[in-house]
Design a binder for these strands. Structure first.
Lengths: 244, 244
DNA sequence: CGAGCGATTGATCATAATCAAGCGATGTGG
DNA sequence: CCACATCGCTTGATTATGATCAATCGCTCG
């Protein structure tokens, strides 16, 4: 098993892939690998997205900065996540993608994607599924920011990230990495860093999470999900590959 | 000019369409027209999206209801807007689409869409552009809910809706319909209905909007945009069709 | 050793939620 | 035709959630 099979693992939550399809994916990940330092941008607002970015290792985020300096993180990108293949249609990016840690990513040309999806319809469908889940996650963030309390927001986000990391094989024995700083979690949840700190402490106090440094452990996922009113349906993990 | 050419008008903000392409679009809108009463659902969470919904007239919204009754509107759908063609891949909808007014929509089969996009690459590209703009709008809502004050949120939303309606020909002399009730605007902006009411009054007091019943007038769009820190880039109206 | 970053804590403040009541227009059934 | 109910909007009073301000601490790194 390669260390860079995160995308493959994720897509297999939707549908079985043949060896040929996995091979085609693998080849895509090979071309033009780039290393980005923490706090650098993978793609900057205003520039044209020439390539599709696939995160091979490390964490990144989509974010937008307002004129007065306020910043909102609109998505976290973990290994196996990729920017939208169609984004290169647009004249200019309306937001940036920044590295939260050191990141390695593959810059894949749109043509390469189209070649592969043209040859492998099932892969094409799996990538469309991936895109739909990404959209559903974005909607769920809207729900969180609009309706949920600070406590629920943070708990919900941790549930989501934990399951997403699980899907790409980055959870071991209820533990995973959680690289974002509290300030970054604050920018994602629309809270202040102080409030994120207090909320994390409350989650710890209730025994729902163990968090030391960048390592998060969730001793009882069901309990955390229940505290967060987290419903995993929007991640659409119940398709061809698993059920039916 | 047909009264149902909203989608065509919108797509032409991205690229010129040939008569054949417009004709193909027109035919799509014809099949299987459905009428939905206000407060009814076009598509319900948990069900399978068999068809693509294209709004021909009236307003709808995507929304999600939490277990305890809280509701978040995650998107407004106005004439010319459509649900994601790929959504039928998913086993079940993770949210509902509800009518805010009486709505007429066209239920288009995925096969019909694929037939048309297969035959007209430019149309295919325009629809992908439409999808990207929808995703950008969703991100911008995340920014609003996470970072903007009540005043900015409401002002920003009004700017967005005004421009979107403008793009489909539903603005006349700085005036458009605004069917959502204040309670619905509250569910979209993550505010209480009381706060929306007070914010609208403040916008009126400052002369930024005129709002009576369901009619909204924006005497000075630039002024409102500036008050909202509204940057229209994310709507990506500057492509092939207009510039270059 | 000093600087800087991230996490933490306490005190105070502000924004917006909640609660409660009333108004005006619309619509409906007796 | 009128009495009454409902809905959407409006207003005032109070409360609460989370922001802001400010300081400290521990750790890492140069």
């Amino acid at each position: 098993v390669s260390t860079n099979d995160h995308l493959t693992r994720k897509l297999e939550h939707f549908t079985q892939l043949s060896p040929a399809e996995k091979d085609a994916l693998e080849k895509l990940m090979g071309e033009r690998v780039r290393r980005i330092a923490a706090r650098e941008d993978l793609l900057r607002e205003g520039s044209k997205a020439e390539y599709v970015c696939l995160i091979l290792s490390g964490w990144a985020c989509r974010y937008r900065t307002l004129e007065d300096g306020r910043r909102q993180i609109t998505a976290f990108l973990v290994p196996g996540d990729l920017s939208d293949p169609d984004e290169s249609i647009l004249r200019a990016m309306d937001h940036s993608i920044g590295a939260l840690t050191r990141v390695t990513c593959a810059d894949i040309s749109r043509e390469a994607i189209e070649r592969v999806t043209g040859a492998h319809p099932r892969l094409s469908k799996a990538l469309r599924w991936e895109r739909l889940v990404t959209a559903a996650i974005q909607r769920e963030w809207t729900v969180s920011l609009g309706q949920r309390s600070a406590f629920e927001r943070v708990a919900h986000l941790l549930c989501e990230l934990f399951l997403r990391l699980h899907a790409v094989g980055l959870v071991e024995a209820n533990r995973c990495e959680l690289p974002p700083t509290q300030a970054e979690l604050a920018e994602a949840t629309g809270l202040s860093a102080v409030q994120v700190n207090r909320t994390l402490q409350e989650l710890r106090r209730q025994g729902l999470i163990l968090l030391r440094g960048r390592e998060l452990a969730i001793p009882n996922l069901k309990a955390l999900q229940s505290a967060a009113q987290f419903n995993p349906n929007y991640l659409h993990r119940d398709h061809e590959g698993l059920a039916a």
